[in-house]
Design a protein around this nucleic acid. Structure first.
Length: 937
RNA sequence: GCGGGUAUGGCGGAAUUGGCAGACGCGCUAGACUUAGGAUCUAGUGUCCCAGACGUGCAGGUUCAACUCCUGUUACCCGCACCA
């Protein structure tokens, strides 16, 4: 098409002039709300990644409008935030100006791509008319006791001079600038999001989020059910509480650990340990989170000199402090059970703390009337040959290690040494490790007896080949063989011996399920029952109770920045914190030229005296404003509600408008926002619901996430890699429709896909071909009969695929349809118009233009075609005939052929006959309309 | 370590319920039309020892039939990461 950009502009202007995409105007249509994450208007302009998701949602919006829905597809700007502030500081302009410029760029780009947004609903989170309501909602949080100020250790970015949320400081580095985050104490506004942990979890069942999105939410909330257990401190009139998910292992607790920041540490530390403890605490304070959570870090810690009393057995167990216990999770204190927790195991090994096994893994099947025995499984390793000593019982038991029963008073090691000597003759061996016992059930045929044995796995190292003669019973008929590891993995079949080998080769805590031992009233119980029994015991003895814990904490809601919504709170020396009067909102940001953060980390607003000084709304006395602003996540937590009623000056959105649109039917965004933004937004909405301001507890029904557009080198696009594609360049050279078509065609929408300019050209060729098809138009009326099946099938497929995000197959089926048109001598005008309508949601400009050229009224004002199910079925079909699962022929079947007929046809194929000749036909499977399989012998 | 995802030609990727693997596009090869081709058209294009056999990361299993279901395993990607 000549001058593609001019044609595109023509139709963009047409849509603007006719307000084609304004919604909510007509009564009686079914509303449908399609949402894409509104962008942060950065200085670098629209990314091809934006184009991908906006086009996808645009295609659905355009199709559904033609189908008669009242489609809300809005766009706005999430424009508060650090980059705009930084940019403004650098260029000595107000961030407002920078944002205005960027919005203009973004909007221009979006228009040039023909997205069918309802621009009449546009707003920016930085508009006072919008952030007035963000502030108003903050006041509601405050008034309902959901916002509070608290002095807490916070993540401090020394470069941005700002406090960061845990989320923004993920991994111990500032998300914005990458600096290493420090810990500081600061008074911060907080929202009680943790109160909503359970509701946020259960609310997921009222949504249709993709599974991976739901999982992201669940993991972030991090629920764990466990117990609180209270430990008395020996010699003190004090106790402390630990959180544990495994209170069933309490009999195995051999020490406790407090976080270095725990309030009791200095009080309980004995004088002789004080110096060491203080030094350790200091060391930890210096370390930032990054260092503390460093990979594979060795456990560190010190003994306080104090002891705790284990409530179940009265044992005195040492109290340590260590930074592997986090002050911020649970109670900041743990009971340590080294036998059954990996971290405790590691710590206990390092500090030589006793390890008590209280849980035995079980193998085999339990049976009545079992005889109890204690036994060993001894693995002997020869380091010189890297082989293991086995006993090959051949068909009388296969390959095993040395095993045997413990005699009276004999310990496991002695027993193992004796058995090794008796069965193999080796004597010069050294114990490497003795692992946790395993409970094994088996049946001994020779004794006609069921046994339950407690077996100790042991590992020895062979020092030399020194041997004495074996001492065998007459019935002991086996070969002693040294074999390597792979042979053992293949040939040792016995469950107990297999497990034992695994145990001794990878010694560590036993964290799985099993049977309790050494645990008095829990003995014999499995994990689940034991936990319940123990909780009952703890509650009866008033030293513990069931407790649920969440990883998710309260939301730190303060930022020491200029470019955010001011928090509408006033501090009065007499009245304390006082909320602003609602009628005084919005609290505007001042128009000043300087807003660098202060050195001590106060918000830039603190420097602006005119602004800070005010009167107390309660007593009228001199007071000061809060100078912190809200985090970036605030404005984006409710913007989708505002789109339903964007010009309302009395409410953030009217209940009527929200009831009309009902909720966001389909929300698309990046995977990177599916955890945090979505959680904040849901929390915000649930709160509004609880105070009666929105119609549903969950206002977002479906949430999907798109894959990234990668550079042609398969790497994330970035300026430094030089692989960035600017959508403007593509639009200019190939046109918006080509870019849109390509981005929909490039691959599975939910997965990352690399950019390919070659493939883009292919899409251009496709659109050119569509244009050329116009030359085939004849002067006949209606649809070409020959094309009707494929036309109807294509309509059906496109509808299905669109709603299932199969955009790439939407286009491939359109390509197939185009090829079918191309194979025709000629096509009718109606055929052509149909094709243009189907392609229109993806490529709206060129289809409108061609449609106009053949004399039709605009597609955007027309209707989506309705397919005829009957016509999607073709009269004849070719199906495959298999012989023993291999395709040997194809046959043509007619729609009314019955099974016998099809069987007949299949069996009479020449090639099929050749393959069944001389064989017996066992059966013939006929799957109607699909396949015939002839099974022969 | 935990959680999730992915693996199919030279490339991007199809295969809705187990039913002809490789749709569609790119790239490539040959030819046609052309002064020309980054235009268009025609034919071809998984591999091989090519009447056939083998092929969806690898090893098994279920089935008349497996990319699809089950068991085990490897690699890569993403998220979380001492969460008791």
């Amino acid at each position: 098409m000549e001058n593609i950009n001019k044609v595109e502009k023509k139709w963009q202007d047409y849509w603007d002039e006719h307000q084609t995409f304004q919604c909510g105007k007509e009564k009686g249509k079914q509303p449908y709300y399609i949402l894409v994450e509104f962008p942060y208007p950065s200085g670098s302009g629209l990314h091809v990644g934006h184009v991908r998701s906006y086009t996808a949602q645009d295609a659905i919006a355009r199709m559904m409008r033609l189908q008669g829905y009242d489609v809300l597809y809005p766009m706005g700007w999430d424009a508060f935030g650090a980059p705009a502030e930084q940019y403004a500081i650098k260029n000595h302009i107000h961030p407002k100006e920078a944002v205005k410029e960027n919005i203009q760029t973004f909007k221009g780009q979006m228009k040039s791509l023909g997205f069918s947004f309802d621009w009449s609903r546009e707003f920016s989170t930085t508009d006072p008319e919008y952030y007035k309501w963000t502030q108003w909602q903050f006041l509601q949080f405050y008034k309902h006791g959901m916002a509070y100020k608290d002095k807490i250790p916070v993540n401090w970015c020394p470069t941005c001079k700002s406090v960061l949320s845990n989320e923004d400081a993920a991994g111990g580095v500032c998300e914005r600038c990458g600096s290493v985050v420090e810990q500081r104490e600061k008074s911060q506004w907080m929202l009680r999001m943790s109160d909503y942990a359970e509701d946020l979890l259960t609310g997921l069942s009222d949504t249709n989020f993709a599974d991976r999105v739901k999982l992201g939410q669940i993991n972030w909330i991090g629920k764990s059910v466990g117990a609180h257990v209270t430990f008395q401190i020996d010699g003190h009139d004090k106790n402390f509480t630990v959180f544990t998910t495994r209170c069933d292992t309490l009999f195995g607790a051999t020490y406790c650990v407090l976080a270095p920041e725990h309030q009791y540490v200095l009080e309980i530390t004995t004088p002789e340990h004080m110096d060491e403890v203080k030094a350790y605490i200091q060391e930890c304070a210096k370390k930032n989170e990054m260092e503390r959570t460093e990979l594979n870090k060795d456990k560190t810690g010190v003994f306080t000199g104090a002891y705790a009393i284990n409530p179940v057995n009265g044992d005195k167990i040492p109290i340590y402090i260590s930074d592997y216990v986090l002050a911020s999770y649970g109670t900041g204190a743990i009971m340590a059970v080294p036998a059954h927790d990996d971290r405790d195991y590691e710590f206990a090994k390092k500090f030589h703390i006793p390890i008590i096994q209280v849980l035995e893994e079980e193998t085999g099947t339990p049976h009545e009337n079992e005889k109890e025995k204690q036994s060993i499984v001894a693995v002997v390793h020869d380091p010189k040959k890297d082989q293991y000593l086995t006993i090959n019982w051949k068909d009388k038991g296969g390959r095993l290690f040395v095993g045997g029963t413990r005699k009276n008073q004999e310990d496991a090691v002695a027993c193992a040494k004796r058995e090794i000597q008796e069965e193999t003759g080796y004597t010069d061996i050294e114990l490497v490790c003795e692992d946790f016992t395993i409970r094994h059930h088996y049946y001994a045929y020779n004794k006609d007896q069921y046994f339950a044995i407690e077996a100790t796995p042991l590992l020895f190292e062979l020092k030399s080949d020194k041997k004495v003669s074996q001492k065998l019973d007459p019935d002991e008929d086996f070969e002693v063989e040294w074999v390597d590891r792979s042979t053992i993995e293949k040939e040792v079949k016995d469950e107990l011996h297999k497990k034992s080998f695994e145990y001794v080769l990878n010694p560590g805590a036993m964290t799985g399920d099993g049977t309790h031992v050494n645990s008095e009233f829990l003995n014999g119980l499995h994990k689940e029952d034991a936990i319940n029994t123990m909780i009952g015991w703890l509650e009866d003895h008033e030293c513990g109770k069931q407790q649920v814990n969440y990883k998710m904490r309260d939301w730190i809601f303060s930022r020491q920045r200029f470019w955010g919504e001011p928090i509408p709170m006033i501090h009065c020396p007499k009245c304390g914190w006082v909320p602003m009067k609602e009628e005084d909102l919005p609290l505007l940001l001042p128009d000043v030229a300087e807003y660098e953060p202060t050195e001590d980390g106060e918000s830039p607003l603190a420097n602006i005296e005119d602004w800070v000084n005010c009167k107390c709304p309660k007593c009228g006395g001199d007071a000061k404003r809060e100078t912190d602003t809200m985090p970036n996540w605030a404005g984006s937590s409710w913007y989708f509600l505002r789109f339903m009623d964007p010009h309302n000056t009395k409410e953030f959105a009217s209940m009527d408008a929200m009831k009309y649109w009902n909720r966001v039917d389909w929300y698309n965004g990046g995977m990177e926002h599916t955890a945090r933004h979505l959680l904040y937004a849901r929390f915000w909405v649930q709160f509004l619901y609880n105070i009666g301001l929105v119609p549903h507890k969950e206002m977002i029904w479906t949430r999907v996430s798109h894959g990234m557009v990668l550079g042609s080198d398969n790497q994330k696009m970035s300026k430094s890699k030089g692989n960035v594609i600017n959508p403007d360049d593509i639009v200019k050279e190939y046109g918006a429709d080509t870019l849109r078509t390509y981005e929909m065609f490039m691959g599975d929408y939910q997965m990352d896909a690399p950019w390919s300019t070659d493939s883009l050209r292919g899409c251009k060729r496709f659109l050119d071909k569509v244009e050329r098809l116009k030359d085939k138009i004849n002067d006949q009326e209606g649809y070409s009969e020959k094309l009707e099946p494929i036309q109807n099938k294509t309509i059906k497929k496109i509808e299905y695929d669109m709603m299932h995000m199969g955009y790439n197959t939407v286009i491939s089926s359109l390509m197939i349809l185009a090829n079918a048109y191309d194979d025709m001598e000629s096509i009718t005008k109606e055929d052509y118009h149909l094709f243009l309508t189907l392609l229109n949601p993806i490529a709206p400009h060129i289809t409108e233009e061609l449609n106009e050229q053949i004399g039709y009224s605009p597609i955007c004002e027309g209707e989506w075609p309705i397919y005829d199910e009957e016509k999607t079925v073709e009269n004849t079909k070719e199906i495959a005939v298999q012989v023993n699962g291999k395709v040997r022929a194809t046959i043509e079947i007619s729609i009314d052929d019955d099974e016998d007929m099809i069987r007949e046809k299949a069996l009479s194929c020449l090639n099929v006959m050749k393959h069944i000749e001389g064989h017996e036909v066992v059966k013939v499977i006929v799957i109607k309309g699909k396949i015939v399989n002839i099974v022969i012998r």
